[in-house]
Design a binder for these strands. Structure first.
Lengths: 206, 206
DNA sequence: CCGGAGATCAACCATTCGGATGATGCATGG
DNA sequence: CCATGCATCATCCGAATGGTTGATCTCCGG
């Protein structure tokens, strides 16, 4: 029997997760907490768990889900499955970087969730199909690396500057700025400055 | 008995909401959908419901929750309770502007949720305590501001969409989008979409 | 009932962007 | 030494954008 702990500040989400977990014959929810602090507190004392389902974004909390993940994995060696709502690349990388065993979006099918919990309990890495696809796309397009100059340009674009303004600001010609932007769009697979900025933000490169 | 329809693209959230609703003696879930399109489809045919619990952000969907809200309220006169995760001022205004009867955050206590559903079924306006406080703060500081529609446009601009894409997304003409954008630039004192987005981000309106 | 605000749409026009192509100079690393 | 990557600049052109003016329509509050 897999003992699962739920850590999410949304009662509704906790209820939903509990329903899914308890509906599986081989797992059960043994504890619920709504803040990262409570989670650590609980682990400190009676804490026994095989898997922890953790929301990356603890509402108000001073402690982020990523930080909590790092602490838990480092201190208790309990697999952490990050289950959050919106999965941006930056979020995913942060979670995995912090040592999360898996990462799932809340809109993942319930079966996938159950499967991920089993994998996590078994010590395997469990990433949602969405996430895998995302990471794959990342690998396939490793060119996510923009040069320093390009990033400089992109930042100015994100600040709302026009090509002309950027050119003046960087002491180069407008042609150069456009050239950089063209490279950026190629690299990011975008087709407009706006889309490039949006995607770059999403990936936390700004 | 209050018939409730759940519209949310997250299976887990739906399960949680269903559990909460079905746990109340005076209400029941009669249908679940995961996209706005499905919701409208259902209402079109067999649709009978006293209250609709709607997620403002339908994941991928081309149709936003706000748009769906407008359509539902306008066409079927069914009270819509918007239940979403992150409540920004703009979200709230958009929802209310679109005709939502109530607005609740997913981290609201379950009793509050049940109460809101009853209020909505009774035709009353039901706003979560959080939201009410938020709106109050808003009134006190009317400082900046864009209409709900304008914010909706600005968000899409921030997401890198072109005017044409925005127009299609909101079911209006490009002229309207440009009109909103012009207004936005006037209000914010900016001269381009990019600058408007940058400034709006700065002020946390996104 | 009138006025104002917001949402909608239209047409026009100057400016800006994005996309394609091509070229030069300068490092760096194999 | 040379391929490669980066930064620089230019030109051309179609598409997108911004600015403006003007016009309904609806809803709300005085």
């Amino acid at each position: 029997m897999i003992d699962v702990v739920l850590a999410d500040d949304h009662p509704v989400v906790r209820t939903g997760l509990r329903a899914v977990v308890d509906d599986q014959p081989d797992m059960q929810v043994v504890h619920e907490v709504s803040t990262a602090e409570d989670l650590l507190q609980w682990l400190e004392h009676e804490g026994r768990a095989d898997v922890i389902l953790l929301d990356l974004r603890f509402g108000d909390g001073r402690m982020s889900g990523a930080t909590a993940t790092g602490t838990i994995v480092g201190r208790y060696r309990i697999p952490v499955l990050v289950v959050t709502t919106y999965g941006t690349d930056a979020d995913i990388l942060a979670a995995i970087g912090a040592g999360a065993t898996g990462y799932l979006l809340k809109d993942a099918p319930t079966e996938e969730l159950a499967r991920a919990i089993r994998s996590a309990a078994a010590g395997e890495v469990a990433l949602g199909a969405d996430v895998q696809r995302r990471l794959l796309g990342r690998v396939r397009a490793p060119a996510e690396h923009l040069s320093a100059r390009e990033l400089e340009v992109l930042r100015l674009v994100a600040a709302g500057r026009s090509n002309d303004a950027i050119a003046r600001e960087l002491f180069v010609s407008v042609a150069t700025v456009k050239s950089h932007l063209a490279h950026i769009n190629t690299r990011l697979g975008t087709t407009s400055r706006g889309a490039a900025v949006a995607l770059a933000r999403d990936r936390g490169m700004l």
